[in-house]
Amino acid sequence: MDIPSDDLEFEIKIRDPRLFDWGIPRYQTELSAGIDLFACVETAIEIHPQAPATLIPSGIAIQMNRPDVAAFLLARSGLGHKKGLVLGQGVGTIDADYTNEIFISAWLRTMPGSEPLTILPGDRIAQLVFLPILRPTLKVVERFSASTQRGDGGFGSTGV
């Protein structure tokens, strides 16, 4: 599926006026895949290693309203690798019909006893990537109409 990016214009609603000072979420470079999202918290918060995930408001809502696009919330690679900050659910899916504020489920994957991570208001803590979506119809069958080299081989069936 080829969706020309110049045909895509989504509306963004600013839920936290501090974003006008920090900068509206945007691509940081010409070839960035995602837009960075800010921690729209009132005060500094500490995320403790292995503690339950914390929901952090992004301060924005987006209207996509297209069945062929969804947004995916991902960890920022530097924070994930260097500090251990990842998403509580791995990847967050923002459906095309979701128009409420986007929240970031932040989880610190470092070992218990490690230092907590402090998140300040305005820190860029996640990224939002837009991807094309295929929506096939599903047909129930007794047997697949074609075979593959792997067949019913499961995990590790092609080697490790």
Rank of each mutant, 00 (worst) to 15 (best):
M1A: 15
I3N: 04
D6K: 10
F10E: 12
I12W: 06
I12N: 08
I12K: 10
K13F: 12
K13P: 01
K13Y: 13
I14K: 11
R15Q: 12
D16P: 03
P17D: 13
L19N: 01
L19W: 03
L19D: 00
L19G: 01
D21E: 14
W22C: 00
G23S: 01
I24Q: 02
I24H: 02
I24W: 02
P25K: 08
R26I: 04
R26P: 02
Y27S: 09
Y27K: 13
T29K: 12
T29A: 11
S32E: 05
A33L: 11
A33S: 12
G34C: 07
G34Y: 03
I35K: 03
F38N: 05
F38K: 04
F38Y: 14
A39M: 07
A39H: 03
V41S: 01
A44I: 08
A44T: 10
H48A: 06
Q50Y: 00
Q50F: 00
A51F: 08
A53I: 04
P57S: 08
P57H: 07
S58Q: 06
S58I: 05
G59A: 02
I60N: 02
I60K: 02
I62C: 02
Q63Y: 03
M64K: 02
M64S: 01
N65G: 07
N65I: 06
R66M: 09
P67A: 12
V69R: 09
V69Q: 06
L74P: 00
A75L: 09
R76D: 07
G78V: 04
V86K: 01
V86N: 04
G88Y: 04
Q89Y: 14
V91W: 07
V91P: 03
G92M: 10
G92V: 07
G92A: 11
D95W: 14
A96E: 09
T99W: 05
T99F: 12
N100A: 14
E101A: 08
I102Q: 00
F103Y: 11
I104V: 11
I104C: 05
S105I: 04
S105C: 13
S105N: 10
M111R: 13
P112K: 13
P112V: 12
L117I: 15
T118V: 15
T118I: 15
T118E: 14
I119R: 00
L120P: 01
L120Y: 13
L120G: 02
P121N: 08
G122K: 03
D123A: 04
I125H: 02
A126P: 03
A126H: 06
Q127S: 04
L128K: 03
L128F: 09
V129G: 02
L131T: 13
P132N: 08
I133C: 09
P136T: 11
T137Y: 07
T137N: 12
L138Y: 14
L138P: 05
L138I: 15
R143L: 13
R143P: 05
R143E: 15
F144R: 11
F144P: 15
A146M: 10
T148H: 09
R150P: 05
G151T: 08
D152H: 12
G153M: 06
G153C: 09
G153P: 02
G153T: 07
F155Y: 15
T158G: 12
G159C: 09
V160Q: 02
V160G: 00
V160H: 07
